[in-house]
């Protein structure tokens, strides 16, 4: 790659090279943060010079799940909550591919919660990009496992009373090799985080805080899309803005960046080694017995 600085890389990277032009414009609502996250993902792919033919994107159902359809690579749009399960099979069978999962908060933590924790446990080389907009946007704005307390959704008209998931803590506790979180407001940082996740040799879980203007923001009177993007800085208070002077007394603090790294053995490698051993033992039972003696 010729680009040496971030600005050079930005000049070089044209997101349209990685999109299926015939599918555009995409179906997302005006101001939906998912598009920003998709750009960051494709920028990271570009910077790592990953061949499109070696890129497989698997996604489930939901607004985030739909994103795979716009990427000019091998993409799979699979059943609700199961993209990690499909991707696990794909990554085991084709270790030469870069397998990326794009999933939403409901898809990943509610319907597919079990798949997530077991993927973290296995630590198979996968990159899971969870776009967290705190709501089931596509199906009409129901409460999701990450909806903040007191937020209004179509199933919690008087405000959500449930505590919400901390997805990154969950993934780290379940043993994911790489855990990170970023907001869409800071695109170059998000790109760097996804890049680090893609380069990680185990299971990488990246949570992206995005905004849902039409379904979530409207019900919670959070203003226009631009205001919602700025709200990520002022209200969530990601780590990068921790010391800013404009709101020194805001109680919230959202840890962002790389949150956990576990240098555990990668599962695919161990699996293939075991498979070879089993196969050779089956092909040559005498040798197998001899070695045991």
């Amino acid at each position: 790659m010729s680009a040496t600085t971030m600005l050079d890389s930005a000049a070089e990277f044209d997101v349209r090279d990685y999109l299926r032009a015939e599918m555009m414009p995409h179906f997302l609502c005006p101001g939906c943060g998912h598009g920003i996250a998709l750009r960051a993902l494709l920028w990271a792919v570009h910077e790592l010079a990953i061949d499109k033919d070696r890129l497989a994107v698997v996604s489930g159902i939901g607004c985030a799940g739909r994103l795979s359809a716009y990427i000019d690579a091998s993409t799979f749009h699979v059943t609700h909550g199961r993209p990690i399960a499909y991707a696990t099979g794909l990554a085991l069978a084709r270790p030469d591919l870069h397998v990326i999962v794009i999933t939403g908060d409901g898809d990943c933590l509610a319907i597919g919660g079990n798949h997530l924790i077991h993927a973290c446990r296995r630590n198979l080389k996968l990159t899971c990009l969870m776009l967290n907009n705190e709501v089931y946007g596509m199906t009409g704005g129901q409460v999701s496992p990450t909806t903040s307390e007191t937020r209004v959704t179509s199933t919690t008209p008087l405000g959500n009373s449930e505590p919400h998931f901390n997805a990154c803590a969950l993934a780290a506790a379940a043993g994911a090799g790489f855990v990170g979180r970023e907001v869409t407001h800071h695109v170059p940082k998000l790109k760097e985080l996804i890049k680090a996740g893609l380069a990680h040799p185990g299971f990488a879980f990246v949570e992206v805080m995005t905004d849902c203007t039409e379904i979530f923001g409207r019900k919670n009177e959070m203003g226009s899309s631009a205001e919602m993007v700025l709200r990520q800085k002022s209200e969530l208070r990601p780590s990068a803005y921790r010391d800013t002077v404009d709101m020194p007394f805001a109680a919230k603090d959202l840890p962002t960046g790389i949150l956990a790294r576990n240098d555990r053995p990668e599962y695919g490698e161990a699996y293939r080694r075991a498979a070879v051993a089993i196969k050779s033992a089956a092909d040559n039972p005498a040798a197998g017995r001899k070695s045991r003696q």
């Binding site: 995409h26 005006p30 695109v187």
Partner: peptide, 17 residues
Amino acid sequence: CRLCEWLCPDFAIRVHL
């Protein structure tokens, strides 16, 4: 500065220098 390019969720802006 490319902020519009980066923050456009619809990829409608491309900044050329």
